[in-house]
Simulated scan of single mutants.
Amino acid sequence: MSGAGGDGRLHVRLGRTALRVSRVCLGTVNFGGRVAEPEARELMDHALDNGINFVDTANMYGWREYKGYTEEVIGRWLTSRPARRDQVVLATKVGNPMSEGVNEQGLSARHIIAACEASLRRLGTDWIDLYQMHHVDRDASWDEVWQAMEILVQQGKVRYVGSSNFAGWDLAAAQEAARARHFLGVVSEQCLYNLAVRQPELELLPAARAYGVAVLPWSPLHGGLLGGVLRKTAEGRAVKSGQGRAAAALETMRGTIERYEELCAQFGRDPAQVGLAWVMSRPGVTSTVIGPRTTAHIKDALQALDSPLSDEETARIEELFPPVGHGGAAPDAWLT
C-alpha cells in the first residue's frame, strides 16, 4: 500500500459526513472503448489493494459500447467477490440522457427513481453510497428533486446525495431547499478543476466550504494536457492527451505547456505527478477523480499524494497558471 495509506492520510471524511473515502478516487469513464473489461478489473483490484476505496461512475458511462456498460463491468467485478462491496464506497450519477425518450434524462422524480433502480440492477448491488446529479436541471424544482432523493434514502437504496458540474449558486439553492425539508442534501460536488481551469476558486469552492460539501475535482490533468502531452506526442505515446479538451486547449496554450514541462523537468518530477499534486493540495479538495488506463497511472496518483509540492514549486507553477483575477473568492478577486 502507498505510504499515504499506511499513516492514515489516504482516507478522509467526505465533506461534513462521517463517511471516509480515499483522497484518490478511481474514475471509470475510460472503461469500455479505451479500457477493456479484463484491464478494468485489474485496475479496480490494483486500486483497492492500494487503499483506494472510492469508485466513481455514471449511468451513461460506457457509451462507446452502450450506455450503462461501465456500471455492468463494475457490477460483475463486485459480484465476483461479494466481500468487495463492503470495502468500496460506490458512486454513480443520474441526469444525462440514457435514450431518445423525452423522460429518460434530467432530474424529474420519475427519472431519478427509475434511473436509480436501473443502476442498482447493472451494478448488482442493493445500495449506492453516493448518488450524484450529473448536471443541474433548470426544469426540475428542488422540492421535486429532494422528494425523489428522500424516497431513495428512506428505501435504503441511496446513502448520500452529491452533485456534479454545479455553479456556486446552484449548490447554495440546492442546500437551502434541502435544509427547509430537514434533509441532509448535497454532501459532495464534482467539478472540472485543475491548473488550466481555476474558475471554481471564485464561487464554487467558497460555497462548498460554507456548506460543508466535499469537492471532487474531475479531469485533474485536463484530459492529459498537464500530463506531459508534448513529450508524449514527440514519442508517439499521446493517447487521450491528443484528443478532446486537451487538444483544444493546446492550440492556445502551447507556449505555457512547453514552459510547464520544462519546469517539471527542472523539478525532476513527472508532469502528471506535478499536476495531480497541485490539485490535491488545494483547500477544500477532498478526493481527486482520476481516469486511469493503466496501473502506472494509479501509481502516479498515489505518488503525487505522497510527494506534495514545496511552496517554491507551487509558486513557480502558479506563475505559469495564475488564478483568475487577483485570486481568491469573488468579488474580491475582481477588486482593484
Rank of each mutant, 00 (worst) to 15 (best):
G224W: 05
H222Y: 07
E261M: 02
G255A: 09
K240L: 02
T252V: 14
Q266R: 15
L250K: 09
A265F: 02
V229N: 03
T252Q: 14
R231F: 10
E251W: 12
A272C: 15
G227R: 03
G224T: 06
R259E: 15
E258F: 02
T288H: 06
S241Q: 01
G244T: 01
V285T: 08
S287C: 08
E258D: 07
R245P: 10
A234I: 10
V229I: 07
R259P: 14
R237K: 15
A277H: 10
V285H: 09
A238D: 00
L230W: 00
A247L: 03
V274I: 07
R254M: 02
E251L: 12
I257N: 01
R282Q: 15
P283Q: 07
V285P: 06
L226W: 00
Q266F: 09
S241A: 03
K240V: 01
E261Y: 07
L250G: 06
E262Q: 15
A248I: 04
E251S: 08
S281Y: 13
V229W: 14
A234Y: 02
G284M: 07
V289T: 11
I290F: 06
W278P: 09
H222I: 01
P283W: 02
L263E: 08
M253V: 03
K232N: 05
A246N: 03
M253N: 14
P271T: 05
G227D: 03
G223F: 06
A277I: 07
Q266Y: 09
E235I: 05
A277K: 09
G227W: 05
T286P: 00
A238L: 00
V239N: 08
I290P: 00
G255K: 09
D270S: 12
Q273D: 15
E262F: 12
E258N: 03
E262C: 09
F267P: 06
G224D: 03
R245H: 10
G227P: 01
L263M: 15
F267N: 12
L221S: 10
R269S: 13
A248V: 06
A247P: 05
G227N: 04
I290W: 06
L225R: 11
L226R: 04
A246Q: 04
G291E: 01
P271Q: 11
E235L: 14
A272V: 05
E235W: 00
G255P: 04
A234E: 09
P217C: 13
G224R: 05
M280C: 07
P220H: 06
S281M: 11
G242D: 01
G242A: 06
A247S: 09
R259I: 00
G268D: 14
C264R: 08
R245M: 14
T288A: 04
K232G: 02
V285A: 06
V289I: 15
G242M: 00
R231V: 12
A249N: 11
R245D: 13
G275A: 15
F267A: 13
A265Y: 03
T256S: 07
Q266D: 14
G284V: 08
A249T: 05
V289Y: 03
D270R: 09
T286A: 10
H222Q: 12
I257W: 01
D270H: 15
L250I: 00
R269I: 08
